[in-house]
């Protein structure tokens, strides 16, 4: 993608009077890190980037802003938020629109067709991070790592993130401005991670998740990063009634994680952020992707494609599968 065009467009949008700020990506403080950038003025747009490191789904910031009580007489800030989105991120926007989590006139969606992101963990493991911020670029057949002026070409398959291997919508499904021509979509890979677990015996599956969930520290980063977990008052935080106890142990962690995944049934757009941010490296995406797969296969439904689509959890079809019913 042409970064100059990106910055130019961003500067133009961020400079508009009816725009509060533009959210994009910028280089992080070290290594391969990328930080969300909140661009309020034209100058700040110069630090924006779009690279194979921009895994973060910024759509979560649309609903994260706290609405503080306004002093009497003060009008709320109704200016728009501009948001840079990849294909997966745009599905979050579409789903938010469908759920009225945001309104169409509150956002300006800037679409970034996405050739695929790298897996940051894999990258750091194979090409250790250094203190200086590094750059990554796309090449025709993969990625190029630029560190200390030196370029290393890496084949796409070596570093492509799992969520991107599985991706079916690399191009934004909703946008106001497109920064580039659509990328050519690729054949999504088989979701081996999910299949592998499906193929285990029931006890094996339980043991697998028991190990995973035991590591959960309930930091709630999976929930907080999720663009579709935007209840101001999450039921899993609530004490009256208590769905999940505050104590951290396998039982509560399991209940928490099942409930979280279930609340995203028919809503998860598979951006993989929950899994990326988990400090305990729990493969949370598998839970979501399993449900998404079932919903796609059995119910013929995919969330986050139509800004005016009907919500899966609030609809039914008379011929929904019922082979599980006694």
């Amino acid at each position: 993608m042409d970064l100059d065009k990106l910055r130019e467009t961003a500067a133009e949008v961020a400079g508009r009077d009816d725009v509060k700020y533009l959210i994009g990506w910028k280089k992080g403080s070290y290594g391969y890190r990328i930080a969300p950038a909140f661009v309020e003025d034209v100058e700040a747009a110069a630090e924006l980037i779009f690279s194979p490191l921009c895994t973060a789904n910024l759509a979560t910031y649309l609903t994260l802003v706290e609405k503080l009580p306004l002093p009497r007489g003060q009008e709320p800030d109704d200016r728009k938020v501009a948001l840079m989105v990849k294909g997966c991120d745009s599905r979050a926007v579409a789903q938010l629109l469908a759920e009225k989590g945001i309104h169409r006139d509150e956002v300006i969606v800037i679409g970034c067709p996405c050739p695929g992101m790298v897996d940051p963990d894999l990258l750091a493991e194979k090409y250790p991070e250094t203190e200086e911020p590094a750059e990554l670029k796309w090449s025709d057949d993969g990625f190029v790592i630029v560190r200390d002026g030196e370029e290393t070409a890496v084949p796409r398959d070596e570093l492509l993130a799992e969520k991107c291997r599985l991706c079916r919508y690399p191009n934004p499904v909703v946008s106001d401005i497109m920064l580039d021509d659509p990328v050519e979509t690729w054949e999504p890979a088989e979701d081996e991670g999910v299949t592998e677990i499906e193929e285990k015996e029931v006890d094996g599956r339980w043991a697998y998740w028991q190990e995973q969930f035991s590591n959960c520290i309930r930091c709630y980063s999976c929930r907080n990063v999720c663009p579709l977990c935007y209840c101001q008052d999450c039921i899993l935080d609530r004490l009256n009634p208590t769905w999940v106890n505050r104590s951290v142990n396998f039982s509560e962690n399991t209940a928490f994680n099942i409930a979280r995944a279930f609340h995203l049934a028919g809503r998860c757009i598979e951006c993989g952020e929950c899994e990326r941010v988990c400090p305990a490296n729990i493969p949370l995406g598998k839970l979501n992707r399993k449900l998404a797969r079932e919903i796609r296969d059995k119910y013929g439904f995919e969330p986050g494609l139509e800004p005016e689509g009907e919500p899966f959890q609030a609809s039914y079809k008379p011929d929904d599968p019922e082979d599980f019913i006694l």
Partner: peptide, 26 residues
Amino acid sequence: YFARRRLGMLKDLLEFAGVDPRRFHM
């Protein structure tokens, strides 16, 4: 109908999480 859809999904999720499918029926 709503119950069928919701609980059908739950059944899939529970099975995937390793809960014996014999533990939950509708």
